[in-house]
Nucleic acid binder design. Structure first.
Lengths: 93, 93
DNA sequence: ATAAATAAGTTTATAATATAAACCAAATGT
DNA sequence: ACATTTGGTTTATATTATAAACTTATTTAT
């Protein structure tokens, strides 16, 4: 039984990645709403994903407000697809 | 986004449940080999699954050796299937 | 103009989890 | 008889996830 990428095998990080697989880009506020997570938890998990290179994080401004935009990387997409394949083995899909 | 049953969202417990979904019964030694886990970890996770009622554990003897046999319960099967459905939402399957 | 509230995050502390290491009792091999 | 293996359990430790507290800047209300 293959190992499940521990970085992806976490509810919140998986949710983040799942969203980013489908939307090209998503900002902090959007991810927070969609995942219904606390800001603190989201911040931590985004950091982990970005420091492993699964996503990129770009901090900018829209008007005077800060805006943190996340995008999935190639590596992230590969990892996600690989995780899905591995998981299928466990789920018998 | 629905919550993923935390009892199942753990690599080893998921592996145990996955096996038990397919085999009717499996003993400690078999599960240990198949999952490549340590005995201690396996013991703990089996306890958790059994104290939640997802599996039953029967300790008996075969000859003079002890034998711990695990079986999945109805509740366990329901929970597993439910987990799979929820997960599909995350994986876009 | 200033105080209070809100927004967008980050940092730090705590609770929960997973894992491994140490241990135990019985059986088997030498 | 003594060491080793088998089949586990218990306890300690490392990792993780989560929440609470904090920061900085921005509105909104008075």
């Amino acid at each position: 039984m293959k190992e499940l990428d521990p970085l992806l095998h976490s509810q919140l990080r998986l949710a983040i990645m799942s969203i980013l697989m489908n939307v090209d880009e998503a900002d902090f506020v959007y991810l927070k709403e969609k995942t219904e997570s606390t800001a603190g938890n989201l911040s931590v998990q985004i950091d982990k994903l970005s420091s492993t290179g699964y996503i990129t994080v770009e901090k900018g401004f829209v008007g005077k407000k800060t805006r943190t935009v996340c995008r999935i990387t190639e590596r992230g997409q590969d990892a996600f697809r690989n995780y899905v394949e591995t998981l299928k083995q466990y789920l018998n899909l």
